[in-house]
Design a binder for these strands. Structure first.
Lengths: 196, 196
DNA sequence: TCATTTAATGACTCCTTACTCACTGACTGT
DNA sequence: ACAGTCAGTGAGTAAGGAGTCATTAAATGA
């Protein structure tokens, strides 16, 4: 690989990284391509040399995030994980990309439809792992016998609610860092069949 | 009241109603003031004759929604309501404004901070009623003894999740019309202390 | 060494959109 | 009846942002 293509690749990565930073802070919709160029330290036109359009740039960032999340979840998923461990794996993966992921789910309807596929992909991965461990626990009568979709939506809804209100729950940092364990513990208590 | 002020008031209401329709369909951010003017059947400039700015118009619509929701909830709330009835009251009120309310919660961070106050106001009303009935049930050991904030957030998170994905769950109509009863029943089952 | 290629630049065009204002004509009070 | 008022109009202005392209200069290879 010669110096020219090396440099080109380098610049592409700089723009992508700059876009990630900007989008993580300001969301996908508001920031202009000018802002991304400035953050990357390149001219405005250079952005369009590497990405056909703003939409393609946004999609590249989202695609990256999807890859990162699903691979993290897959890597740290061992067959035979407990419910606690599966939930933990999921939240740890999101925590590492909390800000960007939060903007993704909040602005999803305003983003190109390809972005929706990415989110569906992420949720499928966690749904699969959760279903695995939950149906086993249901058989053993250890958790309540409610439909999986309802339980899944309750869990995702809860997490997304905390993410969407992260600046309220954790003004200067990660909500998940603060509430992760508590959310898992409480959610499991809610599922449990207990007679105290 | 003379004909002139009557006409003026009439036009104001037409613009506000048009804005409600447009925002319910397209959200608060995307549509232009031109679009609202067209829907209302008035000239573009007329919008600014009645509302200082786009922001003020949006706030007026949101303020209206807040009033409508909180009064509905207050009216159909009787002391001594069961948990089922309290949840029902809340969802019925939202169902009547489902589309607009959904856009409000989804686009909240992009809206002026006054909008946040409105949402907090709505949630305070339901939180108050829910706390009332839940703490009683906790004393009677009929539901699990988890912190109220957690239970409240789980409930709101669940409802918001269904609202945010309404086009997925109910492509051509109201999600709540379809899932309301099921959501309440399942959520109550989740709370219950039972030993089957 | 030097002709050719190409990554990068940034001024420019085009477009959209919020908001203004000089003007029109219907209503009001006398 | 008529001078004054004011709701409504819509062409016009200014700002901002996406995407283009002629130009520059560094790298390449013969």
């Amino acid at each position: 690989m010669n110096k020219r293509t090396q440099q080109r690749e380098q610049t592409r990565i700089e723009i992508l990284t700059a876009a990630e930073h900007i989008y993580a802070v300001h969301g996908f919709i508001r920031p202009s391509t000018q802002m991304v160029a400035k953050e990357a330290g390149v001219a405005h036109g250079t952005v369009f040399l590497h990405f056909q359009s703003q939409e393609k740039l946004i999609l590249a960032v989202i695609e990256n995030l999807g890859q990162s999340l699903t691979s993290q979840i897959h890597e740290s998923s061992v067959p035979g994980h407990s419910l606690n461990e599966v939930l933990q794996t999921y939240l740890t993966a999101i925590e590492a990309n909390e800000s960007l992921y939060t903007h993704l789910i909040m602005e999803l309807p305003q983003l190109p439809k390809e972005a929706q596929q990415t989110v569906i992909g992420i949720q499928s991965v966690i749904a699969h792992h959760l279903d695995q461990v939950m149906s086993q626990l249901k058989k053993e009568k250890k958790i309540k016998d409610l439909s999986f979709p309802f339980l899944f939506n309750t869990w995702i809804g809860l997490i997304h609610y905390y993410l969407m209100n992260r600046r309220l729950f954790a003004p200067h940092g990660s909500v998940l860092a603060v509430y992760k364990d508590q959310l898992i513990a409480n959610f499991i208590t809610l599922l449990e069949v207990d007679c105290t």
